[in-house]
Amino acid sequence: MDNLTVTSSPHFRSNNSTSKIMLYVILALLPTTVVGCVYFGINAVLVVLTGVVFAVLSEYIYEKIMKQPITVGDLSAAVTGLLLALNLPSTTPLWMVALASAISIIVVKQLFGGIGCNFANPALVGRIVITLCFTSETSKFIEPFVNANVDATAGATLLNSIAANEKLPELWRVFLGLHAGCIGEVCSLALIVGGVFLVVTRVINPAIPLSYILTTYLFTTALGYDGLYGILSGGLLLGAIFMATDYVTSPLTVKGKIIFGIGCGVITTVIRIFGSNAEGVSYAIVFMNVLTPLIDNLTAKKSPFAKPNKKEAKAK
């Protein structure tokens, strides 16, 4: 009995870990990634690979240069790169994907102190930056199963069609993702499968996705548009299930998460319908990211064992 370790309790720890959580997120993203790659072909595969590889590489190189412990093993950089790629159309030039990855990881994540410290979702900010800089290159959406190099006529995304009040494709086609869009956003079915997996494995709490989706549905319908198409289009499911639920940039309590989801839904719908920009989801989430500390403050939990403060005591 030499070499006994002395530590603070508890001496048991669950077998959960940051890398396990990230691995589960990657697994949950696999269905939509695979569908996207099948639908949009080799270009999609290349965009995804570039996104992931450059995200991981950026983190590695940054940490090497700054002489910090290397954290690529926690897989969070890989998740960021993957999410970024899935939020881009398959026609995006690869160097832009690489640039967006580097911005996400280095500027948005590492410069703010690394994992856990960033104020907004790195993948979303990376995406917003390149869509603002290179608007035309990053908005050539094509229909599935079209050879982008030969026949690069940009298809209209669902969102464009809704905004233009055009005839919409049948619901089942939308559900399976047979319409133009970003690599990872088209197939609702695959996204929902991933979402259910994350909820069942308790990686995410369903509060944000549910409140986000429901708000969007109700608000879109209330404004006289087709709510169902509203939630099946424009990356809403991808955003609600995978981006808005980013731990670091969303509130801690369930109450806070619901407020966050409702806020995302309202802003998304407003931007889509009243704004000129179709990219409501990204902006809405980033905006709510910024409000997260405030929401956390307002929704701090109260212990049932805390002494009621004077006001409440009087009310009783």
């Binding site: 530590t7 720890r13 959580i21 690394g114 410290c117 709490n205 969303s250 801690l252 309590t253």
Partner: peptide, 15 residues
């Protein structure tokens, strides 16, 4: 007792 890594704000402790 593994080495701690950065808090990822997963809110699991809170719940």
């Amino acid at each position: 007792t593994p080495e701690p890594t950065a808090c990822i704000r997963c809110s699991k402790c809170v719940s």
